[in-house]
Amino acid sequence: MQNFKVLIGTQSQEKLIARLRSKDRRELNEAIRDVYDHHISPVRYFVLQNGGDAHDADDLVQTTVLNFVQAVRNGSFQLQEGTTIEAFLFVLAKNRWRNTLKQRGFMRDYVQEMEATGGGYDSWEASAQRIMEEREEQERYIQLFNLLGERCQTILTAYRRDGLSMREIAQKMGFDNERVAINEKYKCLQKLKALFRYET
């Protein structure tokens, strides 16, 4: 079993998954680059060979990587015995691309063929579908976050993006002191809560 794991690179895949779950943003950044460098090329070729142009391929690559990393980080994706990261990326991308083609009113033969290949249902397909639905919902909330404006976005993200303390955030934003920064953060969160309420 160990040899098999070495053979298909499962060990390195497990390491990559662990790095994608890292709280260290630098490590996460390098892990995402590894996904781009070693695991995403089948997705690009898939789109280019199946009715998409370079722009479609690049768009799908970005969405697929983002959805995959999010799924890894929130625990929706678990590496299973005998599976590979790129094969799962491929399933995610295929579902997205199938939807895109349907939206364009254009179903290529290959999509119908691929729908037929698995007898209609398996756990992977279901997992990819669930991740896609979760992401669609989360994307709506991210759009609401975008409505907050740059100032609130900076206040709410500075801690996680740059590891800044409230005092440093106050300095960066030109506030008088740390308490003002905390008060501003509170106001931004109230604004976000109102947007979420409006959405639901």
Binding site: R33, V65, Q70, Y141, I142, R161, K193, F196
Partner: peptide
Amino acid sequence: EFMQQADSVIDDFLLAEMVGEIHAEKV
């Protein structure tokens, strides 16, 4: 629950930003 959701949205926002930057370089 709201604060957890806000945390998760902020994380995803930052992740999308990071993937977007890496993606632009790779393209």
